[in-house]
Design a protein around this nucleic acid. Structure first.
Length: 438
DNA sequence: CCTCCACTGGAAACCTAGGCTC
DNA sequence: GAGCCTAGGTTTCCAGTGGAGG
């Protein structure tokens, strides 16, 4: 959660207003030079150089924000059908009438979230002009992880404060409905990656949500927009919930390489100064992102990282090499982020896997894990739990762990690291406890 | 065809930490 | 403070699995 940081206390340095006080406040930092000698000047120069370049130097960016993941362009290309269908479905809200619930399907980076944000931004604008009280609440079920947290996030976007634990689900939902009822509000709940909610739980909460209008007075209502990457997700819903949730559905097909190219070209025109990027680099970004499943998010990400790499190298242009380097850099960052976020025991298991060069069975790996725990003086988990951790690491894509039967030798997972060992070890070494083992 | 191995993975129970209501 | 609720992590139990070997 973001905290409100006062400038006076930020990173512990008191507020400084001029050069004189700065010099008095911060003692000179001593940096060891290559030969082990104290070297103030060279380090100061490096930092100064970077800051000076940033402040006064040439930048390849005209507007960096255009390449941010949450940026909503003023014009969305190749999504006219989806935009007009969604706008038609949502339009009755401007007359105070409840629109149908909608399910949006399509793979990652096909524009589901951005189209939803685009249409609802405009809807909100028109509703304000027409004096209709519309509230829009967004939650991502993958990051919220539990039904209760989904409710907490929805509530928080309506300025309702719910404790992070302690309330029953029904009590939390009642409070949200009471707020909607008291404010005579027309509410739109957007649940992104809604399939995560159904993978992990029964769809009871979704059913409750679809029935919530029966408990609200005639001047307020809740409309649901579910967004899913998983087309099979409908099969997991019970028929009652499906019929209420799926009143309308909109499909999002992957972008073609040519469409990606045009999207990137438009973004590049907004993001960069003239002459910074050529067609070749844009084509490569489009081809790399298009080779998977027409993922526009990945294409824009590649462009952003390639540009940042070019800028760091003080290169005046973004080349194909920068795009290729961006691919590696993005993959490495994903691995490092994933490893960093693991709990301690998962890291100890991963360290055991990293130390093996061959495929290893669960039993052998568990023995190594127990040895690691003993060295650290930590109580080990059961093999059953470690088996689940191995499955989780497989899901993350850090390891590969298929179940293989070897006849009389039994049936077990065969485990091997798929991510580069160096990258994994580098990320593991960031953990102080793990460092004791390496 | 049966036995056996070394697990897998589902289900239920347990534990800890915390909030709310009475 | 008791009794209820939650999340999240873990343990315990045990039926099931698939293929090699007898």
């Amino acid at each position: 959660m973001l905290r409100n940081i006062q400038p006076e206390t930020f990173i512990g340095i008191p507020s400084i207003t001029n050069e004189k006080t700065l010099k008095q406040s911060i003692p000179p930092v001593e940096v060891m030079g290559e030969a082990g000698t104290v070297n103030h000047e060279s380090k100061k120069d490096i930092v100064d150089d970077i800051f000076t370049k940033t402040l006064s130097g040439y930048t390849i960016f005209k507007d960096r924000n255009v390449l941010r993941i949450d940026y909503v362009p003023s014009r969305l290309q190749f999504r006219d059908i989806q935009i007009s269908k969604m706008a038609q479905i949502m339009a009755p809200i401007l007359k105070g009438q409840k629109p149908s619930n909608i399910l949006l399907y399509g793979k990652t980076g096909t524009g589901k979230t951005v189209v939803t944000k685009y249409v609802l931004q405009k809807l909100l604008q028109r509703a304000t002009e027409s004096d209709v009280n519309v509230t829009i609440s967004y939650v991502n079920a993958r990051t919220a992880t539990t039904e209760y947290r989904v409710l907490v996030e929805l509530a928080s976007s309506m300025n309702i404060s719910l404790p992070f634990t302690g309330l029953s689900l029904s009590e939390a939902f009642d409070r949200i409905l009471k707020h909607i009822s008291d404010k005579h509000s027309k509410s739109v709940f957007i649940i992104d990656e809604i399939d995560f909610l159904v993978h992990n739980y029964e769809s009871n909460m979704l059913y409750e949500m679809t029935r919530s209008n029966e408990r609200l007075p005639h001047d307020s209502f809740v409309t649901l927009i579910g967004i899913s990457n998983d087309i099979q997700f409908k099969d997991m819903l019970d028929p009652r919930t499906l019929s209420s949730l799926n009143e309308e559905e909109i499909m999002f097909t992957p972008y073609t390489v040519d469409e990606l190219r045009q999207i990137l070209r438009e973004r590049a025109n907004l993001a960069f100064n003239p002459g910074v990027i050529n067609d070749s680099a844009i084509n490569l970004c489009a081809a790399l992102a298009g080779s998977e499943h027409g993922d526009a998010r990945r294409a824009v990400d590649l462009l952003r990282v390639a540009a940042e790499l070019a800028e760091r190298q003080s290169s005046p242009t973004i080349t194909d090499d920068h795009v290729r380097m961006a691919t590696t850099s993005i993959e490495q960052d994903h691995i490092i982020d994933a490893v960093r976020s693991l709990p301690l025991h998962a890291k100890i298991v991963l360290l055991a896997i990293s130390g093996q060069t061959e495929w290893n069975a669960t039993g052998a790996l568990y023995n190594q894990y127990v040895k690691n725990c003993k060295k650290l003086g930590i109580e080990e988990l059961t093999q059953r739990r470690v088996s689940s951790i191995i499955t989780e690491l497989d899901t993350f894509g850090i390891i590969h762990a298929p179940v293989i039967s070897q006849g009389r030798m039994g049936r077990s997972k065969k485990i091997k690291l798929t991510a580069p060992v160096d990258t994994v070890l580098q990320a593991l070494a960031e953990d102080e406890t793990i460092r004791l083992l390496t």
